[in-house]
Amino acid sequence: MNTSTTNAPPAPESNILLNVNGIEVIYNHVVLVLKGVSLQVPEGRIVAILGGNGAGKTTTLRAISNLLKGERGEVTKGMIEYRGERVEALSPSDLVRRGVVQVMEGRHCFAHLTIEENLLAGAYTRSDKGEIAANLDKVYTYFPRLKTRRTSQAAYTSGGEQQMCAIGRALMSNPNMVLLDEPSMGLAPQIVEEVFEIVKDLNAKEKVSFLLAEQNTMVALRYADFGYIVENGRIVMEGAAQELASNEDVKEFYLGLSGEGRKSFREVKHYRRRKRWLS
């Protein structure tokens, strides 16, 4: 592995919320999907995992939230620490109680429940009625659209509303850290911006940290503080978001820009990418 990153790793900050160290994930006992991924999320930041289809973004998030078992995957090497505590062996519901919650790719709202019931279901791990009511109010202030649709069955709302419902539902558990998987998937560019604005807002006002997996590199780098680029189950590059956005390779491979304008020599690109990163 050749992590020929031009940037130094993130400055060692004292308040690292999540620390993933060299994890390997194997599906079905044979398929090696993550080949040693390490990343860190400092408290109160938005960190993005970027990469193409099948790079291992979702698997990384699922490894952290412990939702791999249902997909017949398991973490075989490395460790995951949340606030200094090893969390690989915890169940998803224990993790939610500790403040780590995942918003799954493709939204996954409860189709037959109303929007409000969806949100309340998200408060399953909370028992204080006052706190739940306050959280519900908070979610409605961040997502006013949800309030207008609160009595509709989730399946009948639009894609953007469902994405908001999924994020709002996760917020109902009062998390410190949200793992956000492909929030832009299948949404109109305008809605994508709206969703990311709210994420940024939540990060700034509620001090919620985000680890988000995105294919939409352009948007993600605009809102994130820090980014990791994953390819073939490895981190091939990492750096502050602005640095990544101005990096020539990132521009060429992910943003579709290059010195000579737009090109589409896929074979060439693939070869060059291999040469530079994967060798």
Partner: peptide
């Protein structure tokens, strides 16, 4: 009830239910 709602949630999508902490 809260448990009843969780039961319906699990019925709809048990992965999502798991992801928000319903055991």
């Amino acid at each position: 009830t809260k448990t009843g709602r969780a039961l319906r949630a699990v019925a709809d999508d048990h992965q999502a239910a798991q992801s928000i902490g319903i055991p």
